[in-house]
Design a protein around this nucleic acid. Structure first.
Length: 491
RNA sequence: CGGGGCGUAGCGCAGCCCGGUAGCGCACCUGCUUUGGGAGCAGGGGGUCCCAGGUUCGAAUCCUGGUGCCCCGACCA
């Protein structure tokens, strides 16, 4: 039929694009690299956002909003920061259009050359600069610290190559920006938020992650230390799913943000920033979905349970369906009763599998007469008949089970794809044939890291936080090393 | 920014080589029959053939120049 998805084994990249389109998550837009997030895709993001927002507030943060536009001069105040972002900034140069041409045929709208801005504005690629410019005015004393602010926003990075959710020119994210009196406080904050991200990824997305530290080469532009969570996709490529940065005093110095200590000394403020984006939706897709469509963990599924009357709605089936739905809703479950009488059950089954509804209840007179309902799991594609009595509790338990099963399945795959390697031939071979993370020794130099990338396309995803000290020699140079790092090809 | 591909109905495409009534499938609308894993039949509506110029009696088709998007690389969350 018209809804075929390219199998993963045939073309993983096309499979991903098919899922995005067929599960109605997003469309391409008229603007290159930008996507239209459709209701079903946006609902997933909303559930992510809501869960994260609660976690941020539980850790003491408040939300605020800073402007989309940043004076161009702000970006250049932190030298490394500008180096990192200058290449991909959208710039606003004018503030007015005008119409030229006297006839309908020749009429057109052009940029009014008289409306040139004195200082160009950049569309934020990230908000450190405008926020630290603001913090200068907000911070005088140690009593003003810490400042723990998050914002939900869109940002623009003019990427050369884009893919829906994974890398778009405009994306939605949250960015936390905190200010602290001491380096220890800031470092503790950066680590705390990394933990929040890891907890969210594993408990809500059912996506196992490895917490680690980025190498200097992979560090955020303007950070002293970048922490990250790294996930593994089904094609063996890694995905950076979130980052938390210890910014040191770099932005405080760039924007002259100081505070008076108890001892009446002027000190520069210490900073962190941390963010996750709509990229997580891409990670979610690639962690769980299959050749039949999207597979979603119940906690993030916009519809957790759908009730399909078989073969079509009828008064008796509607009454029974609504009764089940009411009982499920009373347990806080997001349930849809499919009232559509146009499409047949087979069509609906395929459709709900496509969009990733975790549990489907099929209810026909045959079931009703027997006092049971057909329960179908999206993750395992299994079906069974279950008594209608206490079906609400059964389904509630099943959703919990599915959430756990998805995580365990993803974790088993991930763990199977962390390969310890000590010889260069094996290193290349594992990357080429098996994929996944390769755990190997590295001599700690950027030069070696870059050479490995040139040879294999693999980068150091992170130095795992739970790594153990272990003497060894660098996989490429044979120089001494004290700890293994994780290499992978990445998105 | 390099390499490749494609712009024709909402979507997917054929037609182009060899110029002559704008086509097919899906979707959509109407009706009937169906209905426990993507229904069938009949009828119907919908077009700036990417844009501009050129050749021609006549251009979706040939020529020239633009332009947009997609995919693959290098660069990046």
């Amino acid at each position: 039929m018209a809804k075929e998805i390219t199998p993963r084994s045939e073309d993983y990249s096309q499979w991903y694009l098919d899922i995005v389109q067929k599960a109605r998550l997003a469309d391409n837009s008229p603007v290159r690299g930008c996507m239209i997030i459709k209701p079903h895709g946006f609902a997933i993001w909303e559930h992510m956002r809501d869960a994260l927002d609660i976690m941020f507030k539980e850790t003491g943060h408040v939300n605020a909003y800073f402007p989309l536009f940043i004076p161009k001069s702000f970006l250049s105040k932190e030298a490394k920061h500008v180096d990192g972002f200058a290449q991909e900034c959208a710039v606003v140069t004018h503030y007015r259009l005008k119409t030229i041409g006297d006839t309908p045929e020749t009429r057109q709208v052009v940029v009014d050359p008289d409306a040139k801005l004195e200082e160009e504005l950049i569309v934020r690629p990230t908000s450190e600069t405008i926020i630290w410019n603001t913090y200068r005015d907000w911070i005088q004393s140690y009593r003003d610290l810490p400042i723990l602010i998050n914002q939900w926003a869109n940002v623009v990075r003019w990427e050369m190559r884009t893919r829906p959710f994974l890398r778009t020119a405009e994306f939605l994210w949250q960015e936390g920006h905190t200010a602290h009196a001491t380096a220890d406080d800031a470092m503790e904050e950066a680590r705390r938020m990394l933990d929040v991200y890891a907890t969210f990824a594993e408990e809500f997305m059912a996506m196992p992650v490895i917490k680690g530290i980025k190498t200097e080469n992979e560090r955020f532009a303007g950070a002293d230390e970048t922490f990250c969570i790294e996930a593994l996709m089904q094609d063996g490529k890694a995905l950076q799913a979130g980052t938390s940065h210890f910014l040191g005093q770099n932005f405080a110095k760039a924007f002259d943000v100081t505070y008076l200590t108890k001892e009446n000394q002027q000190e520069y403020v210490w900073a962190t920033s941390w963010g996750v984006s709509t990229r997580l939706v891409g990670g979610l897709i690639m962690t769980h979905s299959d050749d039949d469509g999207l597979v979603l963990p119940p906690k993030l599924a916009p519809i957790q349970v759908v009730i399909v009357p078989i073969p079509k709605p009828s008064p008796a089936l509607d009454e029974a369906s609504n009764k089940i739905a009411a009982a499920l809703r009373a347990k806080g479950i997001r349930v849809k009763v499919d009232n559509d009488d146009q499409n047949r059950p087979g069509f609906k089954f395929a459709e709900y599998e496509m969009i990733g509804v975790p549990v489907r209840l099929g209810l026909g007179m045959r079931d009703l007469d027997a006092g049971q309902v057909e329960v179908a799991r999206r993750d395992t594609k299994t079906k069974e008949s279950v008594p209608l009595e206490n079906i609400d509790q059964y389904v509630a338990d099943l959703l919990v089970e599915i959430q756990g099963a998805l995580f365990e399945r993803a974790k088993a795959y991930r763990d199977e794809h962390i390969t310890k390697v000590d010889r260069w031939e094996d290193f290349e071979k594992v990357l080429e044939e098996k994929g996944g993370f390769v755990s190997a020794h590295w001599d700690g130099t950027t030069a070696t890291e870059k050479e490995i990338k040139e040879k294999t396309k693999a980068t150091i995803r992170c130095i795992p936080l739970d790594g153990v000290a272990e003497a060894g020699v660098c996989i490429l140079t044979g120089k001494p090393s004290t700890q293994r790092v994780l290499f992978a090809r990445a998105y």
